[in-house]
């Protein structure tokens, strides 16, 4: 009996060791590029060009970070990433709110106010997820020109909202499918209308999926380069376009340390979103997004 318990203990202990070992190995694999990025960003450029691409810096310097934030050149404008960081913030907030809001109400209609053809419409919206965006750049540019929004942040917000609808609708539809129809019926009997039910019953229950939708949209929009470079110009450019200009030099030397620091700065908002909201993310997904 005692032996049995001990062996089970041992089995348990080896099992735990395996789990932790596996997780640590995976974590090491996942951190490898981050290690390269961070060590490179605090190296002197000469050290990198002398052949030290991977490995510890001989001397730590934060010059590259300062340069990336406030001095790096995007063309002749050497103001660092700061102004473009602000552009991205100005653009991402309305785009995330709009696309999430529209997705929420669409999901609500598709699940709780079904009408003939509503599923078909959902299918039509959903197919938009799989559109290769490179194919729509030119007609979209013509449309924005027609609307007078060419080269503006407002135009970029519009584009991100339009192409975000497919995914946000999918998220909310999958979530609201799990909300019992009885809730809506009861509210209707109490005399609540379409909007009233949405605002005071559906939205409060939807908090987890709102978080998921916002995180997804925030990541996609913040990291988008293609639309940014297509639909804005010069001073209106979002941070990814500026980052690309800092990183991609054609006939000049690459400042790898500044590149890496710039990448970290450009990724900081999304990193923070993932770390701070990460828990809610999984919780939100648990609460419904995976009901497929």
């Amino acid at each position: 009996m005692a032996a049995n318990v001990r062996s089970r203990h041992r089995q348990h202990a080896t099992g735990r060791a395996l789990i932790y070992g596996g997780l640590l190995c995976l974590a090491a694999f996942y951190l490898m590029p981050l290690w390269v990025i961070i060590t490179t960003s605090v190296k002197h450029l000469d050290e990198i060009y002398a052949g030290s691409f991977i490995g510890l810096p001989k001397e730590i310097t934060f010059d590259a970070w300062r340069s990336a934030w406030s001095e790096a050149c995007n063309g002749t404008a050497c103001k660092g990433l700061k102004p473009y960081f602000i552009n991205s913030l100005i653009m991402v907030v309305p785009a995330v709110i709009l696309s999430t809001g529209i997705g929420a109400i669409n999901g609500y209609v598709i699940t709780k106010w079904r009408f003939p053809g509503s599923n078909f419409i959902f299918g039509i919206l959903l197919f938009g997820c799989f559109l290769p965006f490179q194919a729509v750049i030119l007609p979209m540019a013509q449309t924005l020109g027609f609307l007078g929004l060419a080269g503006t942040l407002a135009g970029l917000v519009l584009v991100h909202t339009v192409y975000g609808i497919a995914f946000t609708t999918l998220f909310f539809r999958n979530y609201f499918v799990g909300v019992p129809d009885e809730l809506v019926k009861a509210a209707q009997i109490d005399g609540a209308g379409f909007m009233r039910i949405f605002v005071s019953i559906m939205l409060p229950t939807a908090l987890p999926i709102i978080v998921v939708s916002c995180i997804w949209q925030f990541t996609q929009i913040w990291n988008d380069y293609l639309f940014g470079v297509s639909f804005t110009a010069g001073e209106n450019a979002p941070i990814t376009v500026a980052l690309n200009n800092v990183v991609n030099v054609s006939m000049g030397r690459k400042e790898y340390n500044v590149d890496m620091a710039a990448a970290m700065i450009a990724g900081l908002p999304t990193l923070i979103v993932y770390i701070v909201a990460g828990r809610y993310f999984v919780r939100g997904l648990t609460a419904g997004a995976v009901k497929g």
Binding site: L23, Y225, Y274, I275
Partner: peptide, 20 residues
């Protein structure tokens, strides 16, 4: 650990590509 596994999604590949 969750944060470690999730962070690559947050960074633009324009630069993580160089690290890789």
């Amino acid at each position: 650990l969750r944060a470690i596994f999730l962070y690559p999604m947050a960074l633009s590949f324009i630069v993580t590509g160089t690290a890789w």
